[in-house]
Design a protein around this nucleic acid. Structure first.
Length: 958
RNA sequence: AGGCGCUUGGCGCAGUGGUAGCGCAGCAGCUUUACACGCUGUGGGUCGGGGGUUCGAAUCCCUCAGCGCCUACCA
């Protein structure tokens, strides 16, 4: 560092070092390395995404873990990439298309539309990657993956075929969560329940067989009345049980003749007679629970809502064509006109919303692909038994509960962007008609059931042969260069088979992330070295979406226990990671979630430009306690910047006091170590321990707090100031030794900071010359590989005489200084005015200590005089080291001093009373552990001594 | 409805049985030869309410309240 700016300027430093790291291949993991492995896979951000504060939190943590592991001597792989984000990406490109060309995706056609999506990805897909680089992330970019990469797609298809073969993937007609905006099915996890203010409508219906009897029905969705095919009551309900088997007249559609609107009253245990009126309208086509009732009672289904959320003609003239919410109002109007409407009570209920489109989902009957989750028992056990650890561990319960109540996963999506379902099907008039095709296909695929699976028609009896049949063939299309697949696809397509038009849920590809990114299914060097990964860092909001599913995929496809087909290698414990760290959620300082609509989410890149990436990282980490949400405040980033500046200037100070005369990192001569040096070295040792432990426990805010305290309060505030006593002196040997101590401490401190502040520490590491005498792979090239500081061992402490008594002794000295400074203020002495102190030592005081005290007091002089007789009224502070006087005859404000001492006496007395009361209690003295008793007695003695000294001082004033 | 978490000075948090702490903000002062992105000093809390266990509770137990999150087919 030849030229040292007064303030740290991150902009000039950060890009320089990031380029350097990239050019030097510092982030590239070597699977052939002999070092122990450490690996993380990034939670792949959406390829459409922009960096937000959640990414900052999450990726800073991963970077800290990775950098720390490198310094710990591990071979580190932090594997990055992005996911294709099916709906989000498709919607984005559709919007663009509409805006720029006024076309829909249907205008273009599937193939052309996908070309556009790819074009968009090529152009904008690396935005978020570049943003991560700005943050300083040390990902192995040579291995960057995208879930739609050809190799990755092959993994997805292979997995589909294997699960299909095991019968875990099936096609079913079921009630699914339907998003009317995106017009696709969603999984249960993509539905978010939100309380909504609506109305509970009560309307009456007539019992056909007993025209005097009317039933009152409660509903929140009157627009679905035309879809009702029954009315249910609880068979145990005395009010209604006798009506079961009779019929009611459905009020809608109004124009339908009465005999077409008779629906039965059925008895079903599901009906809660406490709720509503105890009479439930059953709409099997538009409600999950009603669908189940309908199945139990073999009720017909009437669909009245279209895929886009509008009503169809079966809903009746006035409703047809209306949006479902508009239809609700119209239905209410019609009922009111009919005189059927009794009341509309304001009512709050939970409504499922599509997470993506933020509109209420519509339960809808449709044919979809489902997956029965594999490897559930193994996945449950590994967390329950503690082999895989969750941090904080309370998430283990949440995970366990979900797995215990797991429902089949709807994996098909009615989208174009994504992995197309590798299944072809053909409808035959009857089974016999399929036999000819089947023979041909058998011939072509013989022996290749590893990638081709055909469903056999279910033939239970001879008559089944006459029934229509649909045959599914599941093929892994691009499994290799082998042309067989292409030929088979060609064959079946020529026979009239068509590929399913749906794509797979994006999570159906990301659940393979930990191994599909490493070259699976080939037994690659990377997989062998780095799977299972060490840590996963993610948000608890995707514990079901992603974490749980990755664990299942790990067991299913990497494990040796299951019979998932021939595996090229398998592991005894195939769990994909050993630890899962769940971050908190970033909120604004009022505790609100960050969102685009609120506009309360700062742009991390703006913050980086303004304060530096290190500052952003440090500020975020400092306010992110384990398991707590993070209330983000720009003040934290400012604090981070201030800290970097402090670090910078502390190094600048070292450069200024140690000119060319003093080599960097001279040897510490143990005989020249003064108490301040020893104090500092012991504090450093404590800091190394604390930071190391905190990092091992994923307590990042504790680690930063410890570092902050050590560096700012202990090193800068006390040691650096005290060291000026040496540097302003004349003893060259002493100066050299102090510099050696500083270099030792700084070189350790900078390393401790490196995972948190990668840029400034690299700059200082080189600038201060610490890199020069390190081996190339041990910090000579980059601080990234410098060894992580270890706590001092007994030999080291013994050699340098680092006894804990120096901590106590020096703390006492600094306490004396603090009290001495207070005297000036109590005496109303201007801060700028230099004054003389007199010290009356209780024991021998070295000239060095005297000089330190003088300097820290900012005193004009410190007279050390064991026989000092203070003039009456001289303010004094007492310490085990002796008494410190501020002799200022005539200048002292006696009244103020009396008040100060009075307060002091009061405090001492109240503390004495507290301890005395305890010690007077025989229950206390007999039951308490001896150490506690001794400690209390000592405490009482200390307070009494202090009181006596203060009382003496007060007496002297009178 | 159930589960989990939180409640400590104005704000954000640490403290999990033995003298209530930290940072920010506040206040007073300071161009002290690394740093005003700084230095020095300082005020401020009966630890959400109540009860219990204990010689002793912010800390353990019970209970109530408020806030937040997750799970759930109550129309």
């Amino acid at each position: 560092m030849t030229e040292i700016p007064k303030a740290y300027e991150p902009q000039s430093v950060e890009d320089k070092w990031y380029d350097f790291w990239l050019k030097q291949g510092c982030f590239t993991a070597d699977p052939k390395s002999a070092k122990p492995a450490y690996s993380i896979v990034i939670p792949p951000p959406n390829v459409t995404g922009m960096l937000h504060m959640g990414h900052v939190l999450n990726n800073t943590i991963q970077d800290i873990l990775s950098r720390r592991a490198r310094m710990d001597g591990k071979e580190v792989l932090w594997l990055p990439g992005t996911d294709h984000a099916g709906i989000a990406t498709q919607v984005m490109v559709e919007k663009q298309l509409k805006k720029e060309e006024k076309k829909s995706r249907h205008d273009l056609g599937r193939e052309e539309f996908l070309k556009r999506v790819w074009a968009w990805k090529e152009k904008h897909g690396d935005i978020i990657i570049n943003q991560l680089k700005k943050l300083g992330c040390s990902c192995d970019w040579t291995r960057e993956r995208f879930t739609m990469d050809p190799e990755y797609s092959r993994c997805v298809q292979k997995v589909f075929v294997e699960l299909y073969k095991k019968g875990l993937i099936y096609r079913g007609k079921r009630m699914v969560n339907w998003c009317p905006v995106s017009q696709t099915a969603l999984s249960d996890e993509e539905v978010e329940m939100k309380p909504q203010n609506g109305f509970m409508y009560h309307f009456k219906v007539q019992v056909a067989e007993a025209p005097d009897t009317w039933l009152t029905i409660a509903t929140t969705r009157p627009e679905t009345i035309p879809g009702d095919t029954a009315v249910a009551v609880n068979p145990k309900d005395p009010r209604y049980a006798h009506l079961i088997g009779k019929h009611i007249v459905r009020p809608l559609p109004a124009e339908l003749p009465q005999d077409k609107k008779l629906i039965p009253i059925i008895g079903d245990e599901h009906v809660d007679f406490e709720f509503g009126t105890g009479v439930l309208k059953v709409t099997p086509a538009h409600d999950k629970a009603d669908f189940d009732i309908g199945t139990r009672h073999k009720l017909p289904l009437i669909e009245v809502i279209n895929a886009d959320g509008t009503m169809n003609t079966l809903a009746g003239g006035p409703l047809a064509g209306l949006d479902r919410f508009k239809a609700r109002k119209v239905a209410v109007e019609i009922l009111t006109e009919q005189g059927a409407m009794i009341e509309a009570k304001p009512y709050e209920n939970n409504v499922g919303f599509s997470q993506r489109a933020d509109v209420p989902i519509e339960p809808r009957l449709s044919e979809q692909w489902f997956l029965k989750y594999p490897a559930v028992p193994e996945s449950k056990a590994c967390v329950a038994e503690g082999r895989m650890k969750f941090h904080p561990d309370r998430w283990a319960k949440v995970y366990d509960h979900w797995l215990a109540n797991i429902q089949d996963w709807c994996i098909s999506r009615q989208l174009w962007w994504g992995h197309r379902i590798p299944v072809w099907s053909k409808d035959y008039a009857d089974h016999l008609a399929s036999f000819g095709d089947s023979d041909k296909i058998d011939k072509a695929t013989r022996g290749r059931n590893d990638f081709v699976v055909r469903t056999e028609p279910q033939i239970k009896c001879a008559e089944d042969n006459d029934k229509p049949a649909r045959i599914y063939i599941c093929i892994s299309p691009d499994a290799s260069a082998d042309s067989d697949q292409k030929n088979i696809i060609q064959l079946i397509e020529s026979l009239g088979y068509k590929q399913d038009s749906d794509v797979l849920d994006t999570w159906f590809s990301s659940w393979l992330w930990p191994f599909a990114t490493m070259g699976w299914p080939e037994p690659t060097e990377t997989l062998k070295k780095f799977y299972p990964t060490t840590d996963l860092v993610t948000g608890p909001d995707i514990i079901f979406f992603w974490v749980a599913r990755m664990i299942m995929a790990g067991y299913e496809f990497m494990g040796e226990a299951e019979s998932a087909g021939p595996k090229k290698f398998a592991l005894p414990d195939a769990m994909p990671f050993q630890n899962v760290y769940f971050t908190g959620i970033i909120r604004d300082k009022q505790g609100r979630k960050m969102s685009k609509t609120l506009g309360n989410s700062p742009d991390p890149l703006v913050l980086i430009a303004q304060y530096g990436a290190d500052a952003l990282r440090f500020g975020t980490m400092r306010s992110a306690p384990l398991g707590q949400d993070v209330l983000f405040d720009e003040k934290d980033v400012e604090l981070g910047r201030n800290f970097c500046n402090k670090l910078w200037n502390a190094c600048r100070f070292r450069q200024m006091v140690g000119s060319a005369d003093f080599p960097i990192q001279g040897e510490i001569e143990r005989t020249l170590l003064n108490p301040d040096d020893k104090w500092l070295l012991l504090k450093l040792d404590a800091a190394i321990r604390e930071v190391t432990i905190a990092l091992n426990e994923y307590k990042f805010s504790e680690a930063t707090a410890a570092l902050y305290r050590f560096f700012w309060n202990e090193y800068c505030d006390w040691y650096v100031e005290a060291s000026k006593a040496v540097f302003f002196g004349t003893d060259a040997k002493q100066k050299a030794n102090t510099l050696a101590v500083i270099d030792f401490v700084l070189s350790h401190t900078i390393r401790l900071f490196h995972p948190f502040l990668p840029f400034i520490t690299e700059e200082l590491w080189h600038g201060m010359g610490f890199a020069t005498d390190m081996p190339d792979n041990q910090g000579g090239k980059t601080i990234m590989n410098a060894p992580w500081p270890l706590p001092f061992d007994d030999d080291f402490k013994g050699h340098y005489g680092l006894d804990d008594c120096y901590v106590e002794m020096t703390d006492t000295k600094y306490e004396l200084v603090r009290n001495g400074r207070d005297l000036r203020r109590a005496g109303n002495i201007q801060a700028a005015k230099k004054v003389k102190y007199v010290f009356k030592p209780a024991q021998h005081l070295t000239p060095h200590d005297a000089e330190v005290i003088k300097l820290l007091l900012n005193a004009e002089a410190l007279e050390v005089n064991a026989d000092y007789l203070p003039p009456k009224g001289t303010p004094v502070v007492a310490s085990p080291l002796g008494e410190l006087f501020l002799p200022l005859e005539g200048l002292i404000d006696v009244a103020a001093e009396k008040i100060r001492l009075g307060k002091e006496i009061e405090k001492n007395q109240s503390e004495i009373v507290k301890v005395e009361q305890k010690l007077a209690n025989p229950n206390f003295t007999t039951k308490v552990p001896p150490a506690v008793l001794v400690e209390h007695e000592q405490r009482l003695l200390d307070w009494k001594n202090k009181l006596a000294q203060v009382q003496t001082a007060l007496a002297a004033l009178n």
